[in-house]
Protein backbone atom coordinates (compact mmCIF):
# COMPACT_ATOMS: atom_id res chain seq x y z
CA UNK A 1 0.00 0.00 0.00
CA UNK A 2 2.73 2.41 0.98
CA UNK A 3 4.58 1.60 -2.20
CA UNK A 4 1.73 3.01 -4.24
CA UNK A 5 1.49 5.98 -1.93
CA UNK A 6 4.74 7.35 -3.32
CA UNK A 7 3.81 10.07 -5.82
CA UNK A 8 6.32 8.96 -8.46
CA UNK A 9 4.94 5.39 -8.34
CA UNK A 10 1.39 6.69 -8.43
CA UNK A 11 2.09 8.88 -11.45
CA UNK A 12 3.79 6.07 -13.32
CA UNK A 13 0.89 3.74 -12.55
CA UNK A 14 -1.61 6.40 -13.59
CA UNK A 15 0.26 6.90 -16.88
CA UNK A 16 0.21 3.17 -17.63
CA UNK A 17 -3.45 2.77 -16.73
CA UNK A 18 -4.74 5.95 -18.38
CA UNK A 19 -5.27 4.55 -21.92
CA UNK A 20 -7.04 1.52 -20.43
CA UNK A 21 -9.25 3.66 -18.26
CA UNK A 22 -10.19 5.84 -21.23
CA UNK A 23 -10.92 2.77 -23.36
CA UNK A 24 -13.04 1.13 -20.66
CA UNK A 25 -14.96 4.34 -19.99
CA UNK A 26 -15.68 5.04 -23.66
CA UNK A 27 -16.62 1.45 -24.55
CA UNK A 28 -18.81 0.74 -21.51
CA UNK A 29 -20.32 4.22 -21.66
CA UNK A 30 -21.16 3.92 -25.34
CA UNK A 31 -22.57 0.42 -24.99
CA UNK A 32 -24.44 1.37 -21.83
CA UNK A 33 -26.03 4.38 -23.54
CA UNK A 34 -27.00 2.30 -26.56
CA UNK A 35 -28.49 -0.48 -24.45
CA UNK A 36 -30.21 1.94 -22.10
CA UNK A 37 -31.71 4.17 -24.74
CA UNK A 38 -32.51 1.69 -27.55
CA UNK A 39 -32.24 -1.92 -26.52
CA UNK A 40 -33.81 -2.04 -23.07
CA UNK A 41 -37.61 -2.02 -22.98
CA UNK A 42 -39.84 0.56 -21.36
CA UNK A 43 -40.98 -0.36 -17.85
CA UNK A 44 -44.49 -1.82 -17.57
CA UNK A 45 -45.36 0.71 -14.86
CA UNK A 46 -43.07 3.66 -15.43
CA UNK A 47 -42.87 3.58 -19.22
CA UNK A 48 -39.86 5.22 -20.82
CA UNK A 49 -39.00 7.25 -17.72
CA UNK A 50 -37.24 4.13 -16.46
CA UNK A 51 -34.41 5.14 -18.79
CA UNK A 52 -33.55 7.90 -16.32
CA UNK A 53 -32.55 5.07 -13.98
CA UNK A 54 -29.49 4.27 -16.12
CA UNK A 55 -27.91 7.51 -15.01
CA UNK A 56 -29.77 8.18 -11.77
CA UNK A 57 -28.75 4.95 -10.02
CA UNK A 58 -25.08 4.87 -11.13
CA UNK A 59 -24.65 8.54 -10.14
CA UNK A 60 -26.06 7.66 -6.70
CA UNK A 61 -23.61 4.76 -6.37
CA UNK A 62 -20.76 7.02 -7.44
CA UNK A 63 -21.80 9.65 -4.91
CA UNK A 64 -21.49 7.06 -2.15
CA UNK A 65 -18.40 5.36 -3.61
CA UNK A 66 -16.51 8.64 -3.92
CA UNK A 67 -17.51 9.61 -0.40
CA UNK A 68 -16.19 6.36 1.09
CA UNK A 69 -12.98 6.78 -0.94
CA UNK A 70 -12.63 10.37 0.23
CA UNK A 71 -13.18 9.38 3.87
CA UNK A 72 -10.61 6.54 3.66
CA UNK A 73 -8.07 8.93 2.15
CA UNK A 74 -8.95 11.45 4.87
CA UNK A 75 -8.31 8.82 7.54
CA UNK A 76 -4.98 7.87 5.93
CA UNK A 77 -3.90 11.49 5.79
CA UNK A 78 -4.84 11.97 9.47
CA UNK A 79 -3.13 8.79 10.67
CA UNK A 80 -0.04 8.56 8.46
CA UNK A 81 0.09 12.22 7.41
CA UNK A 82 0.75 11.05 3.88
CA UNK A 83 0.35 13.99 1.48
CA UNK A 84 -0.83 11.81 -1.39
CA UNK A 85 -3.83 10.60 0.63
CA UNK A 86 -4.79 14.20 1.30
CA UNK A 87 -4.33 15.09 -2.38
CA UNK A 88 -6.48 12.13 -3.46
CA UNK A 89 -9.23 13.11 -1.02
CA UNK A 90 -9.20 16.68 -2.34
CA UNK A 91 -9.28 15.41 -5.94
CA UNK A 92 -12.20 13.08 -5.19
CA UNK A 93 -14.48 15.65 -3.57
CA UNK A 94 -15.57 17.58 -6.70
CA UNK A 95 -16.28 14.35 -8.62
CA UNK A 96 -18.36 12.96 -5.77
CA UNK A 97 -20.18 16.25 -5.33
CA UNK A 98 -20.97 16.35 -9.05
CA UNK A 99 -22.32 12.80 -9.08
CA UNK A 100 -24.42 13.45 -5.96
CA UNK A 101 -25.84 16.63 -7.48
CA UNK A 102 -26.58 14.78 -10.73
CA UNK A 103 -28.31 12.03 -8.75
CA UNK A 104 -30.56 14.62 -7.08
CA UNK A 105 -31.28 16.43 -10.36
CA UNK A 106 -32.07 13.30 -12.37
CA UNK A 107 -34.10 12.00 -9.44
CA UNK A 108 -36.10 15.20 -9.52
CA UNK A 109 -36.63 14.83 -13.27
CA UNK A 110 -37.84 11.30 -12.64
CA UNK A 111 -39.95 12.21 -9.61
CA UNK A 112 -41.96 14.90 -11.37
CA UNK A 113 -43.59 12.60 -13.99
CA UNK A 114 -43.77 9.50 -11.75
CA UNK A 115 -44.50 10.81 -8.25
CA UNK A 116 -46.03 14.10 -9.34
CA UNK A 117 -43.45 16.13 -7.42
CA UNK A 118 -39.92 17.41 -7.99
CA UNK A 119 -38.94 17.01 -4.38
CA UNK A 120 -40.21 15.42 -1.20
CA UNK A 121 -38.54 15.23 2.22
CA UNK A 122 -38.27 11.48 1.95
CA UNK A 123 -35.49 9.82 3.99
CA UNK A 124 -33.49 8.74 0.91
CA UNK A 125 -33.70 12.14 -0.75
CA UNK A 126 -32.89 14.01 2.44
CA UNK A 127 -29.86 11.84 3.29
CA UNK A 128 -28.62 12.25 -0.28
CA UNK A 129 -28.94 16.03 0.05
CA UNK A 130 -26.93 15.82 3.28
CA UNK A 131 -24.28 13.88 1.36
CA UNK A 132 -24.04 16.76 -1.12
CA UNK A 133 -23.67 19.24 1.75
CA UNK A 134 -20.93 17.08 3.27
CA UNK A 135 -19.01 17.26 0.01
CA UNK A 136 -19.50 21.02 -0.27
CA UNK A 137 -18.54 21.46 3.38
CA UNK A 138 -15.38 19.42 2.86
CA UNK A 139 -14.37 21.43 -0.20
CA UNK A 140 -15.00 24.74 1.57
CA UNK A 141 -13.16 23.61 4.70
CA UNK A 142 -9.95 22.31 3.09
CA UNK A 143 -9.51 25.61 1.29
CA UNK A 144 -10.51 27.80 4.22
CA UNK A 145 -7.07 27.88 5.87
CA UNK A 146 -3.87 29.59 4.77
CA UNK A 147 -1.98 26.55 5.97
CA UNK A 148 -3.01 23.63 3.70
CA UNK A 149 -2.15 21.13 6.43
CA UNK A 150 -4.66 22.60 8.85
CA UNK A 151 -7.25 22.64 6.08
CA UNK A 152 -6.73 18.98 5.30
CA UNK A 153 -6.92 18.06 9.00
CA UNK A 154 -10.25 19.82 9.43
CA UNK A 155 -11.56 18.43 6.13
CA UNK A 156 -10.52 14.87 6.94
CA UNK A 157 -12.25 15.10 10.32
CA UNK A 158 -15.45 16.29 8.63
CA UNK A 159 -15.23 13.55 5.99
CA UNK A 160 -14.83 10.89 8.69
CA UNK A 161 -17.72 12.17 10.81
CA UNK A 162 -19.88 12.28 7.67
CA UNK A 163 -19.34 8.57 7.02
CA UNK A 164 -22.29 7.84 9.36
CA UNK A 165 -24.48 9.26 6.60
CA UNK A 166 -23.43 6.55 4.11
CA UNK A 167 -25.30 3.61 5.72
CA UNK A 168 -28.19 5.98 6.36
CA UNK A 169 -28.43 6.66 2.61
CA UNK A 170 -28.17 2.95 1.82
CA UNK A 171 -30.73 1.70 4.35
CA UNK A 172 -33.02 4.73 4.43
CA UNK A 173 -35.41 3.01 2.03
CA UNK A 174 -35.77 0.07 4.43
CA UNK A 175 -35.85 2.02 7.68
CA UNK A 176 -38.35 4.63 6.57
CA UNK A 177 -40.76 3.24 4.07
CA UNK A 178 -41.80 6.42 2.31
CA UNK A 179 -41.86 7.43 -1.33
CA UNK A 180 -38.53 6.25 -2.71
CA UNK A 181 -38.56 2.65 -3.90
CA UNK A 182 -36.38 0.08 -2.09
CA UNK A 183 -33.20 -1.45 -3.52
CA UNK A 184 -33.55 -3.72 -6.54
CA UNK A 185 -29.90 -4.46 -7.39
CA UNK A 186 -27.80 -4.67 -4.21
CA UNK A 187 -30.13 -7.07 -2.38
CA UNK A 188 -29.37 -10.06 -0.17
CA UNK A 189 -31.33 -12.36 -2.51
CA UNK A 190 -29.74 -11.06 -5.71
CA UNK A 191 -30.98 -8.40 -8.11
CA UNK A 192 -34.73 -8.34 -8.67
CA UNK A 193 -34.34 -6.40 -11.89
CA UNK A 194 -34.58 -7.87 -15.38
CA UNK A 195 -31.23 -8.48 -17.20
CA UNK A 196 -32.37 -6.19 -20.05
CA UNK A 197 -32.31 -3.33 -17.54
CA UNK A 198 -29.48 -4.61 -15.36
CA UNK A 199 -26.98 -4.65 -18.24
CA UNK A 200 -27.17 -0.97 -19.22
CA UNK A 201 -27.25 -0.08 -15.53
CA UNK A 202 -24.04 -1.97 -14.77
CA UNK A 203 -22.27 -0.72 -17.91
CA UNK A 204 -23.06 2.87 -17.01
CA UNK A 205 -21.80 2.23 -13.48
CA UNK A 206 -18.51 0.91 -14.88
CA UNK A 207 -18.23 3.90 -17.22
CA UNK A 208 -18.79 6.38 -14.38
CA UNK A 209 -16.20 4.58 -12.24
CA UNK A 210 -13.69 4.80 -15.10
CA UNK A 211 -14.52 8.48 -15.50
CA UNK A 212 -13.87 9.00 -11.79
CA UNK A 213 -10.40 7.44 -12.01
CA UNK A 214 -9.54 9.54 -15.07
CA UNK A 215 -10.51 12.75 -13.28
CA UNK A 216 -8.71 11.57 -10.15
CA UNK A 217 -5.46 11.03 -12.08
CA UNK A 218 -5.73 14.46 -13.73
CA UNK A 219 -6.53 16.33 -10.51
CA UNK A 220 -3.90 14.54 -8.41
CA UNK A 221 -1.30 15.45 -11.01
CA UNK A 222 -2.23 19.11 -11.07
CA UNK A 223 -2.40 19.28 -7.27
CA UNK A 224 1.14 17.80 -7.10
CA UNK A 225 2.25 20.50 -9.53
CA UNK A 226 0.58 23.18 -7.40
CA UNK A 227 2.43 21.95 -4.31
CA UNK A 228 5.69 21.90 -6.18
CA UNK A 229 5.03 25.48 -7.31
CA UNK A 230 4.35 26.51 -3.70
CA UNK A 231 7.53 24.80 -2.55
CA UNK A 232 9.59 26.47 -5.28
CA UNK A 233 8.15 29.87 -4.45
CA UNK A 234 9.04 29.35 -0.80
CA UNK A 235 12.55 28.15 -1.60
CA UNK A 236 12.93 31.03 -4.04
CA UNK A 237 12.27 33.43 -1.17
CA UNK A 238 14.73 31.70 1.11
CA UNK A 239 17.32 31.43 -1.59
CA UNK A 240 17.82 35.17 -1.60
CA UNK A 241 19.84 34.57 1.58
CA UNK A 242 22.05 31.80 0.21
CA UNK A 243 21.71 29.85 -3.00
CA UNK A 244 22.08 26.41 -1.48
CA UNK A 245 18.49 25.41 -0.58
CA UNK A 246 16.81 23.60 -3.39
CA UNK A 247 13.07 23.36 -3.85
CA UNK A 248 13.16 19.60 -4.04
CA UNK A 249 14.72 19.33 -0.62
CA UNK A 250 11.86 21.31 0.86
CA UNK A 251 9.10 19.40 -0.82
CA UNK A 252 10.35 16.22 -2.33
CA UNK A 253 7.23 14.68 -3.78
CA UNK A 254 6.51 17.72 -5.87
CA UNK A 255 9.63 16.93 -7.84
CA UNK A 256 8.06 13.89 -9.40
CA UNK A 257 5.10 15.90 -10.60
CA UNK A 258 7.40 18.12 -12.60
CA UNK A 259 8.95 15.06 -14.19
CA UNK A 260 5.56 13.81 -15.45
CA UNK A 261 4.90 14.40 -19.10
Amino acid sequence: MHRFAKPSVFLKLADTLMPWMIAITVITGGTGLYLGLFWSPADYQQGDTVRIMYIHVPTAWMGLFCYVGMAICGAMSLIWKHPLADIAARATAPVGAMFTALCLITGSLWGEPMWGTWWVWDARLTSMLILLFLYLGYMALVNAFDDPERGSKAGSALALVGVVNVPIVKFSVDWWNTLHQPASVARMDGPSIDPSMLWPLMLMAVAFTGYYFIILAIRVRSELNERRIRALQLSGLFEQGDGTTSGSALYDQGHNAGAGK
Partner: peptide
Protein backbone atom coordinates in the same frame (compact mmCIF):
# COMPACT_ATOMS: atom_id res chain seq x y z
CA UNK B 1 -40.57 8.88 -25.32
CA UNK B 2 -44.34 8.63 -24.75
CA UNK B 3 -44.41 12.29 -23.78
CA UNK B 4 -41.65 11.91 -21.19
CA UNK B 5 -38.94 12.95 -23.65
CA UNK B 6 -38.25 16.27 -21.98
CA UNK B 7 -37.56 14.65 -18.60
CA UNK B 8 -35.46 11.84 -20.03
CA UNK B 9 -33.39 13.85 -22.48
CA UNK B 10 -32.75 16.66 -20.03
CA UNK B 11 -31.44 14.16 -17.43
CA UNK B 12 -29.03 12.75 -20.00
Amino acid sequence: MEGYGLYIWSSY
